[in-house]
Design a protein around this nucleic acid. Structure first.
Lengths: 163, 163
DNA sequence: ATTTGACCTCAACCGTGGTTGAGCTGATGG
DNA sequence: CCATCAGCTCAACCACGGTTGAGGTCAAAT
């Protein structure tokens, strides 16, 4: 167990302090969420404040925030020091908004579903559950597609990409 | 366009009526969610009431219900006829409960997060956001794992398997 | 001198929900 | 007679968030 000079930590120490396995840390590094210098034997050497970033990743995981979104907010974080209290507030408020959005999306679905439980028509042309946000206007008579060619999901975390 | 004898539909007709592409229908069949007989040239021949099952799958998709859960409720559906109104009510109430659960999970996270926005400690040992449902009792002093070896996600759809 | 432990890289694999493409068959139309 | 269309199978691929394993390197301990 090599003691690290003050504020440089080996990956083993990061693992012990955070519980995050090496494979995940490697993964986060590949995704650009965390970074490290390299020591004499090519081992990763992490700044102490990387622990903060990792904490944020862990929180994001609990909130089901995709890593791509984490990457996005991380671009606004200082790279040379630990994120400040202000940084945390900014980030956490963003994530709180995302939770709110998700909750509202679910509430809307609950409403719709509740309305349809008694109905049960599941009609190809009339059911609102099957035809999301459908104006149901000028489609002419006859059977109507249940889905648009590419139907977006109204629920769940956002779908932006990291790379 | 071959007219199907009344209540047997080709996959083409299913596609036209539901908008679900063949690849997805094949997939659902492999997963056991829908089934078909085969015609003279090995084409799938679907009973008309398969349309109802497919409608249910589409609804489940909108609700972000995983196919494994759909498979589960489908085991309680009649295979020789369309699901009845009762069936729909039963299924939709189950799914409504799942939405409620998800909403409550999110609400809890919102609470926690809101509490932590002002704090911002993100302490390895004290932060509730980092130590979910932690009694924070007899772990002794010193740094504490942020995560249990296998930390379950408190949010999102359930994680049962189809196969 | 060698073994162990800590660390490295790279490739392959998992589940979820499919899509895409190649290559084949079978019925129909001109 | 042959094109074309509808359908079939099977394998490979996508994103996401990693895990697992093989094989290599380096330093410390025995």
């Amino acid at each position: 167990m090599r003691a690290s000079p003050d504020d440089h930590l080996t990956i083993g120490e990061i693992i012990r302090r955070t519980g995050v396995p090496a494979s995940a840390l490697h993964f986060y590094e590949r995704k650009g969420l965390i970074f490290s210098e390299r020591g004499s034997g090519n081992q990763r050497i992490f700044s102490r404040h990387m622990l903060r970033r990792i904490s944020l990743i862990i929180v994001a995981k609990r909130l089901n925030i995709p890593l791509s979104d984490v990457a996005e907010v991380f671009t606004t974080l200082p790279t040379d020091q630990a994120p400040t209290h202000k940084d945390w507030q900014r980030v956490s408020r963003i994530w709180k908004k995302q939770l709110e959005e998700r909750r509202r999306a679910i509430e809307n679905l609950e409403q719709e579903l509740t309305g349809c439980i008694g109905c049960g028509c599941l009609s190809m042309k009339a059911c609102l559950l099957l035809n999301p946000d459908d104006a149901l206007g000028g489609r002419g008579p006859g059977p109507v597609r249940l889905q648009e060619p590419t139907a977006p999901l109204p629920d769940g975390p956002s779908t932006r990409r990291t790379t």
